[in-house]
Amino acid sequence: MITLTNINKTFKIAKRQAGFGRAVKALFSREYTLIRALNDVSFSIADGEMVGYIGPNGAGKSTTIKIMCGILTPDRGECVIDGRTPWRNRVAHVREIGVVFGQRSQLWWDVPIIDSFELIRDIYKTDAKTYQNSLDELTALLDLSELLKTPARSLSLGQRMRCEIAASLIHNPKILFLDEPTIGLDAVSKIAVRQFIKKLNAERGTTVILTTHDMQDIEALTRRILLIGKGRILLDGSLDELKKRSTERKTLVVEYIGNAPVLCEGMTPCETREGRVVITLDPVILSVSDAITRLAAQVSLTDVSVLDVSAEEMVAGLYKEYEI
């Protein structure tokens, strides 16, 4: 169980200035800007939940993750994870969590992966039996058997990420933090990683907190989304709820024979070509069926399809709505 209550965090950043004169001036005095990275952030996550933590760059995602990992102390507020405060009981806390930083490696570059794993086993004092079980399970799920004898430097990015995730799970943590786990991966590796995370959550019951910019990760994995922007939690809900909020606009792709149809109020053309038109509908003014009826009265339709908004667009829409 993870509970964050009114977490606040402010950073002080020195301003760098352009130009020769200012560079000289900055030698002697410097100006600072205060940045409120987190502003009364509160949420709670139950055991075994899988949560997607999204928001644009600089919104406060990694600050929150760092606080939950015990790397950072907040200015104010409480964070309790399984009855412990991360930054007060560091050693006891980190024993129960696994962390994957997508752009950073914890594997040894020049020695076989298995050596890195065994070192991690010793760091976490995992006993031999648990280690063996865990390793067997991870090897099977992530298809690592071929990779274990290879040094990290000769692995592809996707292979390395699979090993990276395994390395964070050897000690059987209850909670897994994934910071952009699919960044830079090819499509096949992305799917493999997603499937694994899903299985892990289902079989081990591991709580998973995932930050990502890839909405397909979210669609594939999480039912619950936390959207953060400018240091505030803007939305805490399911992907479906999110969809409902942003289904105000629908896209209609129409193919027809005949002269171009005249569009009425509520239809906005996006793309017009001979025999094909893409229209954005505002369903408050005009329902989908009405729109089709009106169009059918003017031309003979050969094909009509109604597109749902993709998660990607939805989030872009949300960012816009909240001006972040």
């Binding site: 020769f20 560079a23 000289v24 900055a26 030698l27 002697f28 410097r30």
Partner: peptide
């Protein structure tokens, strides 16, 4: 030369 020079000036504490 100028851009290198300005860049060098940025490092106040280093100086």
């Amino acid at each position: 030369f100028r851009i290198r020079f300005i860049n060098g000036l940025q490092y106040r504490a280093a100086a």
